[in-house]
Computed example of a mutant assay.
Amino acid sequence: MTTLLIADLHLHPGAPEIADGFFNYIEHRAQHAETLYILGDFFDAWIGDDILDTPGMHPLAERVVASLSALSRQGTAVYLMHGNRDFLLGQRFADQCGATLLDEATVSEIGGQRYLMMHGDSLCTRDDAYMAFRAQARDPEWQAYILSLPIEQRLELAKTLRTESGDAISNKAEDIMDVTPVEVETIMAKHAVTTLIHGHTHRPDVHDLTVDGKPAKRYVLGDWRPDQGWDILITSGQAPQLRRFPLREPLSRD
């Protein structure tokens, strides 16, 4: 049994190296896995599933759908989670990919071990401005209003949000953009787990902590860049492995 987890690819047409690296990853690693989890920010922006209604409007997304649906058909279970950039990914997109949409915090049992999986943005509670935006962006009425706008207007809105996000990040203290330790311990205790896996912060690492008096671990996935990707490999009877790999070279089969 092999389970793979990835996050924060931020796929967009302006980063073809990352897109090619993802398709290489699917061909050489994911197709040999039992399960693939994509824990948010799969796309750098997603303006609605109807972007796929017009062939050729989003060639990259069409290629992603073809790749993941083929992966699903050959037997790999695919799971998708919303991130802070692609919170408008919908059931329609997931169905076309042959994937299952996951809730914000999902506990999965793999090889007899319980894992709490999250994108991770909800853990950054010290960033008051972002948490306010997050509450708005996850509001069903706000999402329905955005999705009612013409595609061209949504594309412009996505550009504006990306620019504003970049400007905001450049003016924030580093610790504010990281997870809040108390929030991590609280949600792990709530779900009765000793292992948490998330992305979002772009700070790949494995952290030791204590939850309800028990030793625990927090695995943080890295973001993908033109020269490298990150994943976590879980196999039966083995602890999760956080791995960095080059995108420009053939990937070995797990």
Rank of each mutant, 00 (worst) to 15 (best):
T106N: 13
H200R: 02
F93I: 09
R253N: 10
A30H: 09
G90S: 12
S170Y: 00
S67D: 07
I18N: 03
L4G: 04
S122N: 10
R29Q: 15
A7P: 06
D212H: 05
A61P: 08
V107Q: 09
G222C: 03
G56C: 11
E185Q: 15
D227C: 00
D139S: 01
M117P: 05
R29W: 00
F42A: 14
L101Q: 08
P226E: 01
L251R: 08
E152T: 05
R225Q: 14
M1A: 10
V193F: 02
I146S: 04
I47P: 13
N24P: 00
H198M: 10
I232V: 09
V211A: 11
D121F: 00
L36E: 12
I18V: 15
I47S: 15
P250S: 12
Q228T: 00
A144K: 10
F42G: 08
I26F: 07
D121C: 05
H10L: 07
Y25M: 05
E34L: 04
L123Q: 03
L9W: 04
T210N: 08
Y79R: 08
W46H: 11
E152D: 15
S122D: 14
A105W: 06
A33V: 08
G56N: 13
F23Q: 03
G199F: 08
D231L: 06
N24T: 10
T210M: 12
L9M: 15
P226C: 13
L102V: 13
F23A: 07
D167Y: 06
N171R: 12
R29V: 09
A239W: 06
Q143G: 07
H200F: 09
C97A: 10
P226N: 01
A66I: 10
N84S: 10
P226M: 03
H200V: 01
Y37K: 06
D49A: 05
S170F: 02
T195R: 13
Q113A: 07
T210H: 03
A135Q: 13
I169T: 15
L11H: 11
A132F: 01
I110L: 15
Y37W: 11
N24A: 15
L123Y: 05
I187T: 13
L102T: 14
V64A: 14
D227G: 00
P59R: 09
I197E: 10
A19I: 07
L155P: 01
P59G: 14
Q74L: 06
L247V: 04
A77R: 14
E141R: 02
R85Q: 09
A19L: 10
A173K: 12
G111Q: 04
R162D: 04
V184C: 11
T100P: 02
D121L: 08
R138M: 08
Q143I: 06
A189Y: 07
D86T: 03
A105I: 02
H28N: 14
Q91T: 05
I18S: 08
R138Q: 11
L11Q: 09
A189Q: 12
L71G: 08
G222T: 03
W142L: 02
D41Y: 05
V193Y: 13
D178T: 13
L209E: 07
G75H: 06
L9Y: 03
R92Q: 09
D178L: 13
D49R: 05
H32I: 03
